[in-house]
């Protein structure tokens, strides 16, 4: 069973907590005192109009942006001083709103880059076909293939991203994020560019890979996906959290209806 390959080694405790995050660019406040409590085993949705600061919030969590104030911790570990690469080492991965696959690598190889941190082969194996390095490469290929298969795009494994439709590229990015069994999975508009069938498959695949140790956060404009997938939802508007709760509670929130659902007619 393929999904067994993506199952976690063991559930890990510890929530991803953000407290009082502020972020500004040249006087423009992009995030204003954002508090987040992202629990393992729950899918958290992050919604809000364009420009609300969702991607910026992801960038703060992964360390690409330094918040001007506030603190971020994963379990007992404070993340504020850690580089993006160090946070990746703690099991935080993400997909990007704008496609970020290498055009020089096949889809399978792109997914294999998601395993970089868990691979140990040295420089000798990079230039010589040593047994250890080959075994590791084959293992990485198997795992990457399993991740592609999980998302239903194994047939595209040996094609290059520029040859693939946006939907497949998007799923490839998610496969790359999933392949290393992350502790935290941040998905930035995973259904953007996907058709209805692909979106449905994505929703199912995400539900399938969800497990009690995983913190999954999804930024998305597709309300069907959000409502089907998420256990909790944060609503962001102009850099502020204006509502937070179960899908039903958020859908019923008058403020949310006014600024977001009503206005955008999603």
């Amino acid at each position: 069973m393929q999904s067994a390959n993506l199952a976690p080694p063991s559930p890990q405790p510890g929530a991803l907590i953000a407290h009082g995050l502020n972020l500004s660019f040249g006087g423009i406040e992009v995030l204003k005192g954002v508090d987040l409590d992202l629990r393992p085993g729950l899918v958290t949705g992050l919604i809000g109009p364009n420009g609300a600061g969702k991607t910026s919030l992801f960038n703060c969590l992964t360390g690409l942006y330094r918040p001007t104030a506030g603190r971020i911790a994963l379990g007992d570990t404070g993340l504020d001083a850690l580089s993006p690469a160090r946070r990746a080492g703690l099991g935080m991965v993400r997909s990007f709103q704008h496609m970020a696959l290498s055009p020089d690598l096949t889809l399978l190889e792109n997914v294999m880059t998601g395993l970089t941190l868990s691979r140990r082969s040295g420089w000798a194996s990079a230039f010589l076909p040593l047994p250890g390095g080959r075994a590791e490469t084959q293992d990485a290929q198997r795992r990457a293939m399993a991740a592609l298969d999980e998302l239903g795009i194994a047939a595209a494994a040996h094609l290059a991203p520029p040859e693939l439709p946006p939907g497949t590229q998007r799923l490839g990015e998610i496969a790359r994020a999933l392949v290393a069994h992350p502790r935290v999975l941040l998905l930035d508009e995973p259904a953007a560019g996907l058709n209805a069938v692909e979106t449905r498959d994505l929703t199912r695949a995400l539900r399938r890979v969800m497990h009690p140790g995983l913190i999954m956060v999804v930024v998305e404009h597709d309300m069907d996906l959000i409502m089907q997938l998420c256990d909790r939802i944060y609503v962001l508007n102009f850099g502020k959290v204006i509502a937070c709760g179960s899908p039903a509670a958020v859908q019923a929130d008058p403020e949310v209806l006014r600024v977001y659902l009503g206005a955008d007619d999603e």
Partner: peptide, 30 residues
């Protein structure tokens, strides 16, 4: 050696870093 390097962990990491340095960084490739 260079043909082998293309398929190695390091070679692929470098190709990703060249195309998308930020994405590479998010996967531990500084």
């Amino acid at each position: 050696a260079l043909a082998h390097f293309r398929g190695s962990r390091q070679g692929m990491a470098l190709l990703l870093a060249r195309a998308h340095p930020r994405a590479a960084e998010a996967f531990g490739i500084t």
